[in-house]
């Protein structure tokens, strides 16, 4: 068993028993129940040990926010291989034992993988410096997801290059009020502020410890 972190789509599926999940609805209601899960859970069996998956998602129960999640998977190599084979899921290139590595200690291709992965998911990566710990990167991802879930329909899930004035006035005001509520600096925000900066502010709010099972961020 080993631990890896995955950025995964949040999907609708069915729990079909034995710790297994399926995208296909069962023939009879008693053969499964509808659930929303990290896509990682479609692969492997999830009741072999406690806490084999822990997921923090960016979407509300009614479907607003950011429809991705981060999942801490503690599974055998075969299950990790199945998850990695899904092109829609990205495995972060470090384990739970390597959270205190600096970004610069990762290989060039691993660094590029992280930067590309974040940007493709509309998560700003420009704040990362060589000495940033990978723990801080995971925390940033988790904080954006928590923020997306808290903001729900108001979360600016749009191209990071877009400006704040592309949001409706109401949405813009609610996002700023949200940041104010967390005592984030908002005096530097104006109509031309890129969404990238807003997402970074959400991801770097001082919200205390964030937990993903035994890992504290």
């Amino acid at each position: 068993m080993s631990v890896a972190y995955y950025l995964s789509p949040w999907v609708a599926a069915y729990a079909i028993g034995g710790g297994n999940f399926s995208l296909i609805p069962p023939l009879l209601p008693e053969d499964g129940r509808p659930v929303n899960i990290s896509k990682c859970l479609l692969y492997g069996q999830w009741n072999l040990t406690p806490n084999s998956s822990i997921t923090l998602r960016g979407v509300t129960g009614t479907g607003f926010g950011k429809a991705i999640c981060i999942t801490r998977v503690d599974q055998d190599d075969a299950t990790h291989a199945l998850i990695v084979a899904d092109a829609a899921i990205r495995r972060l290139p470090f384990s739970d034992k390597q959270l205190d590595l600096e970004f610069q200690s990762l290989s060039g291709s691993q660094q590029q993988f992280i930067v590309n992965g974040l940007e493709n998911l509309r998560l700003d990566s420009t704040w990362i410096v060589p000495t940033t710990l990978v723990r801080e990167i995971v925390r940033y991802i988790m904080c954006v997801l928590i923020g997306a879930k808290e903001l729900g329909v108001d979360f600016p899930e749009t191209d990071l290059a877009n400006k704040l004035n592309t949001l409706s006035p109401g949405q813009k005001n609610r996002v700023i009020a949200y940041l104010d509520g967390w005592k984030a600096t908002t005096s530097d925000i104006n109509s031309n502020t890129p969404i990238r900066d807003i997402v970074t502010k959400i991801g770097r709010l001082a919200r205390g410890e964030v937990l993903l099972g035994p890992d504290t961020f």
């Binding site: 659930v35 009741n47 072999l48 806490n51």
Partner: peptide
């Protein structure tokens, strides 16, 4: 089957963690 830590929103299940 299994234990599940869940959030239920208006009857809709979101799995937060899988148990044993």
């Amino acid at each position: 089957d299994s234990y599940y830590l869940v959030e239920i929103t208006a009857g809709v299940e979101s799995i937060m963690a899988t148990g044993g």
